[in-house]
């Protein structure tokens, strides 16, 4: 599907504090026009209303909207399901933050919420496609632990290649023979603090991760 839009460029940046942004779970038809207009204006691929409904009716719990006051400034739309009868996989279909609000971690927060919901629903991995030229999105997903699993040749109709990005959740059997993992995660936690990441990551998520390992 379509690449996500979150660029690092800060032209015409809106003045606001991160705490002024409200994140709301999809809550019915009245949200649909907001999502559609955001996606329509920011992404090039055209989607019919049925595509939007396909996602938000079946997986409303994976769809979030970001509001600054009354204004909807960002959204994420996802799905999940069995992939080739082997893997329960989450999929990020659309991620948009409007230009003046980019670079402030809104997209990271939106997508983090969706990924958390996927993890809680038992997904083993999350995938998406992003244009190889969309550096902002690639960096964002890289920070969240996605790897570039494949390159898809001329994936978009505009002739641009895509990367298939993939995030694999820790699996119990994977870590069982690895005694040093706990140490590593501790040190990572520490480094996260040192390097002063501005991205908002809920503390309980790190706890969850550590408890798995």
């Amino acid at each position: 599907m379509e690449a996500s839009k979150e660029a690092e460029d800060g032209e015409r940046n809106a003045e606001f504090d991160a705490s002024e942004i409200d994140y709301i779970s999809y809550d019915g038809e009245h949200h649909l026009p907001l999502i559609m207009s955001l996606v329509d204006q920011e992404l090039s691929e055209p989607y019919s209303i049925f595509t939007y409904r396909y996602f938000v009716y079946l997986w409303p719990q994976l769809c979030f909207l970001a509001f600054h006051g009354d204004k909807c400034v960002g959204t994420v739309v996802c799905k999940m399901g069995e992939h080739r009868n082997t893997t329960f996989r989450g999929y990020i279909a659309m991620l948009v933050v409007i230009k003046p609000y980019r670079g402030k971690g809104i997209a990271t927060e939106l997508v983090t919420r969706s990924i958390n919901a996927m993890m809680e629903s038992g997904c083993e991995e999350v995938t998406l496609e992003a244009e190889v030229t969309n550096k902002g999105a690639l960096a964002l997903y890289g920070r969240l632990g996605f790897i570039r699993a494949k390159r898809l040749f001329r994936y978009y109709l505009n002739g641009v290649d895509a990367f298939r990005l993939k995030l694999m959740f820790p699996q119990p059997d994977l870590h069982s023979y690895l005694p040093m993992m706990t140490n590593m995660d501790d040190s990572q936690h520490h480094r996260d603090h040192v390097s002063g990441h501005t991205e908002h990551i809920a503390a309980e998520e790190n706890l969850k991760l550590n408890s798995v390992s």
């Binding site: 694999m168 959740f169 690895l178 590593m184």
Partner: peptide, 11 residues
């Protein structure tokens, strides 16, 4: 690259 969802092992 510490990240919230997985570790180097998964990658």
């Amino acid at each position: 690259s510490p990240n919230p969802f997985n570790s180097e092992h998964e990658r």
